[in-house]
Computed example of a mutant assay.
Amino acid sequence: MVWTVDDIPSQEERVALVTGANSGLGLATARAMSARGATVIMACRCRRKAETARTQLLEAGLTGLDLLDLDLADLNSVRRAAAEVSDRYGHLDLLFNNAGVMAPPRQLTVQGHELQLGVNHLGHMALTLQLLPLMQGRNDARVVTVTSGAQYFGRIRWDDPSWAQGYDRYGAYSQSKLANVMFALELEARQQEQGGGIRSLAAHPGLARTDLQPTAIASGGNRLEAVAYRLMDPLFQSAAMGALPQLHAATAATAQGGEHYGPDQLGGMRGHPTRCRIAPAALDREQRQRLWQLSEELAGGLLMP
C-alpha cells in the first residue's frame, strides 16, 4: 500500500519548522503540513522569496504560516533564528532540516567553512542542537534531516573537510550528504542514551525536480553535465513526490528513530516512501562520533545555545 499526503495524520496544535521552505521540497513540505493543520515556520535565507512562497500558499487557502529569517551559511544567523523561535513559540514539535546547496564553485561560509558542508551539515546541526530544548517533552517530537543518494558516494575528508586542496564540487556535496545521515543517526543514538524522547530520522527525495539541479548546472558551466541532466529528465519526479519521504518520516505512526526513508522504485530514484539502506560509513558509530567532534571543533562554540 502506497503512502501519500492523505495519510498524514492531523497536525493541529503542532508547530513545524521547515528550512528552505520557499521552493522545491521545502515548499511542498510546508504546503502539506499546513494543509493538515500545523503551524509552519518557513525558515528561509531570502525574505523576498519567502514572502512570495507564503503568499502563494495563503492564496491557496492555507493558514498558520510564519516566516523566519535564517542563513545557514552563518552560524550567528542560526543562533538568532533559534532564539526567535523560542521567543515566538516557546516550543517546537517537528524540525525539517531540508534546505541545501548542491555543487557550486568553491565558496566559504561566514565562518570560513566550505559552503556545502557549512550549509547542509554544520548549519543544520547547529540549528537542531539549539532547538532541541524547545522540543523536549513534546509529544512525538521528531527531527528529520534530508540527505540524498549522494551519501553512498561520500566520504569525510577528515584532514581537509573544507576542501582547501583539490576541490571537487560533487565530492564536497557527497561529503555533506553523508554528514547529514551520520548526524541524524548519531543524534538518535544520543537521544536514546539520554532518554531525551526526541526521534531523529533521515530521508532522501530520490530524483526530484527542484531548483538544485538547474542551479548546479548553471554554476558549473559544463555542457556534458547539462546534456546528462536532460537525458535523465524523464526519471525526475515532482517536488511534491520528492517530499513524501521526509513527510512520512516526520508524521507516520510507524516511522521510528534512526530510520531512513526514500522512494521505493528504480533503486530509490522515484516512487512512494519506503525504508532504504544507509551509507555504511553512517552505520559506524566511531565515525559518527568523530564527525560530531570535528563539527564541534569547526563551529568553535557556535553549535550550542
Rank of each mutant, 00 (worst) to 15 (best):
D6R: 15
Q11A: 04
L17T: 04
V18H: 00
V18K: 03
T19A: 04
T19W: 02
N22R: 10
G24L: 10
L25Q: 10
A28R: 03
A28C: 06
A28Q: 01
S34T: 01
A35V: 08
A35F: 00
R36T: 05
A38T: 03
V40P: 00
V40S: 01
M42T: 04
R45S: 12
C46R: 15
K49H: 05
A50R: 08
A53P: 13
A53E: 04
T55A: 07
L57K: 02
E59Q: 13
E59I: 13
E59N: 10
L62E: 01
T63K: 03
L65R: 02
L70K: 05
D71M: 13
D71Q: 12
D71R: 12
A73V: 12
A73E: 13
A81F: 04
A81I: 13
A81R: 05
E84M: 06
E84S: 06
S86F: 01
G90R: 14
G90P: 15
D93W: 03
F96D: 02
N97G: 03
A99G: 12
V101I: 15
M102N: 08
P104T: 15
P105Q: 09
Q107W: 11
Q116N: 15
Q116T: 15
G118I: 09
V119M: 12
N120P: 09
G123W: 00
M125A: 05
L127I: 02
Q130K: 11
Q130T: 13
L132W: 06
L132D: 05
L134Q: 13
M135L: 11
Q136R: 13
G137H: 11
G137K: 10
G137R: 11
D140Y: 08
R142A: 07
V146A: 07
V146I: 15
V146Q: 07
T147C: 06
G149Y: 02
G149V: 01
A150M: 06
R155Y: 08
W158A: 09
D160G: 10
W163V: 15
Y167H: 13
Y167P: 10
Y167S: 14
D168P: 09
A172W: 01
S176L: 09
L178E: 01
L178G: 02
A179L: 03
V181K: 08
V181T: 15
V181W: 00
A184G: 08
E186N: 00
L187N: 02
A189H: 02
A189Y: 00
Q191P: 14
E193V: 12
Q194N: 06
G195L: 00
G195I: 00
R199S: 14
R199P: 09
L207G: 05
A208H: 04
D211V: 10
I217L: 13
N222C: 12
R223D: 05
E225H: 06
A226C: 06
Y229G: 09
Y229R: 06
A239I: 05
A239K: 01
A240S: 07
M241F: 06
A243Y: 01
Q246I: 04
Q246V: 08
G257W: 01
G257M: 07
E259Q: 14
H260T: 11
D264E: 06
L266C: 09
G268V: 01
G268S: 04
G271H: 09
H272F: 08
P273M: 10
A279M: 14
A281E: 15
L283H: 14
R285Q: 10
E286I: 15
Q293S: 07
L294C: 08
E296R: 04
G301F: 05
